[in-house]
Amino acid sequence: MNKEHLSDSELQEYSLNGENCPPQFNEHIQSCNFCRQKAELYQLMFSSEMKPEAPIFDFDLTQTVMRQLPVPQSTALEKSYTIYWVGASVFLSAGALIYLIFMTSRGFLFGKITPMTLGISITTFLAIFAVLGIDIFQKHTKQMKVLQSELQQLGSLAV
């Protein structure tokens, strides 16, 4: 056995970082039972075999935290977009209606359009705008719902 025992820090270095150790560590350990056993104990203590089970929380942390987050901004955003769409539809419809009444009443004054034609025209245009407006609103609501559920799925699936 050469010289005194390896220090604890040398033994740890040898056990956990063997290949980068000075060769004299190895020489000593080969010839000294005490140091070899200590080094083996360090190796065994931190081997994967001795690794304790990882702790886990005994409640659903994800759900508990997600419930406490402030209301998602996307909902607020969705509402502001909805208002924008409905507003734009109403505005466009009203503009078109005024224009239509103006144009047809001029024609009516000049006797080119009968009251019957005027009535039919106004009803038709009103119907078209109503259908368009409702369609835009429904499409928008649907898209927002799909987007929201996709997000929730992504959130719960992604690991």
Partner: peptide, 20 residues
């Protein structure tokens, strides 16, 4: 940008370390 539901993925990814 407001998709706060995605925060769940971050919790799932990191809760092992946080638990330790």
């Amino acid at each position: 940008r407001g998709e706060s539901a995605l925060f769940a993925a971050i919790i799932k990814q990191t809760q092992g370390l946080v638990a330790q």
